[in-house]
Amino acid sequence: MSNTKRRLVFGGLATIATAALLAGCASAPATSSSSAPTASAAANFKPCMVSDLGGFDDKSFNQLGDEGLKDGAEAVGVKPIEVQSAAETDYAPNIDSLISQNCTLIVTVGFALSAATVTAALANPTVDFAIIDDAADNDFDGKTDAPNIKPILFNTAQAAFLAGYASASYSKAGKVATYGGMNFPTVTIFMDGFAQGVEYYNAQKSKSVQVLGYDIKNPDAATFTGGFEANDTAKTTAQNFIDQGADVLLPVGGPIFQSAGAAISDSGKDVALLGADADVYDTFPTYDSLYFTSVLKGIKQATSDVVKASATGDTFDTTAYIGDLSNDGVGIAPFHDFSSKVDSGLQGELDTIKASIISGSIPVTSYLTK
């Protein structure tokens, strides 16, 4: 993505974010004034979802979205329909297939489905749409491109800031690394926040921990694996950072963290691994001894709430939801097996930093705030 296009994306989405926050959208999506849908509304309600290429077993944001869909559907007493995408060319046909099955809410997972979601929403104005991790603003004018789409967004830079600070505190080599699947704002927002957290640690502690793979001043030079699959490229990318001496890795891009786990195991070195979106200690315990923490998104709860809101039969609230530290829409997981290995005062420092980020006294910039 060029610098020009990145600025357009950042500017457009920031406008949406600001408008949403001014409209009081900092809390989780409301399920409307009705506590439950009427029997007739529920009988006609059919919630559906389309995954991106990561699939619903990615142990990350597709899986969390799917769990949220199922939770919401169960709460209103209906059965959801899910369609998994195996290729980018599946996105539009998969959405169309759900429309043909009379889905009343279609949730699409990920920015890669943005264009297909907008096209379908414009062609089907009576169907409710929601998209996870994208503002559906393909013309970059700061507005969602269809009036029946609800963006579900997360300011994960704030949580990644905490993870970056903790990683810098833990690193014995003085080198940490972060890299992504592809160069999209919803990927680089993790990397950006992580690097800001390391930078803040260095300033507070008079240290010089390096961040490999991402430069705040030159984000277009960041490292990416080229996709969101756990494959040899993702493993080699992790291995390269291990070879450069990094002892903490934050891969951002669905299951690519699994390849990093394999690379660390093969290296025999003492390298800590961070997860993104979900607490990978729980969702993919294969490398549980390697997991330092995870940068979390409240995708499951937000999606469930959107499903329940759509089911009421009332006017669907399409105001963008933005999860951040203040509404527990983002956060970091426990240190699990690393609890005894981190500095005894670290958690207290993180609690103070979190409060300062929420109050605004520690600014954390991202495409949702610039």
Rank of each mutant, 00 (worst) to 15 (best):
V307N: 00
S339T: 15
A272R: 05
S33L: 15
K205H: 10
S265D: 13
V76R: 07
N62A: 06
S289Y: 08
S169C: 13
G253V: 10
D134M: 13
F190H: 06
G329M: 10
A263W: 06
F129M: 01
A222D: 04
G323N: 10
Y321S: 06
A116V: 13
V118H: 07
S289K: 01
V307M: 04
T186F: 14
T233I: 12
F161E: 12
A168W: 05
V342L: 03
S326E: 13
A92E: 15
S40H: 10
L8R: 11
D134T: 15
T237W: 00
A14P: 08
G226L: 07
G174H: 01
I99N: 05
L122V: 14
P93S: 05
V307C: 01
I357M: 02
A309G: 15
G180V: 04
G55L: 10
G253F: 02
A355C: 08
S206C: 15
L22H: 05
I299R: 06
A116Y: 10
A28Q: 13
P219K: 00
C103N: 04
A135C: 00
T178P: 02
F161L: 11
I131L: 08
P185I: 12
V271C: 00
D96M: 08
G181D: 06
D343K: 14
D270G: 02
G345P: 09
D192L: 15
T156N: 12
D133Q: 03
K354L: 08
A123T: 02
D133L: 13
D282N: 14
K341M: 01
T104S: 05
A173F: 07
N124E: 03
K370G: 14
G24C: 01
F241N: 07
I242D: 00
M1A: 02
T369L: 04
A302Q: 07
T144S: 14
V330Q: 01
F292G: 01
A246P: 06
A246G: 02
C25Y: 13
T4M: 13
F56I: 13
A121S: 07
A41L: 04
S32F: 12
F61Q: 06
K297A: 08
T4W: 14
A115F: 00
A355V: 10
V76T: 07
D266E: 13
S326D: 09
Y179L: 06
D314N: 11
S340P: 05
V209C: 05
L21N: 14
P47Y: 03
Q84N: 04
P334V: 05
G345E: 15
L368Y: 07
I322K: 04
S289D: 05
I216W: 04
T186M: 13
K205R: 11
A39L: 12
K205S: 12
T233Q: 10
L162M: 09
K59L: 14
Q196L: 01
T233N: 08
V306E: 02
Q158C: 02
S27Y: 12
G253N: 01
G275T: 09
G54R: 14
S289A: 07
I357Y: 08
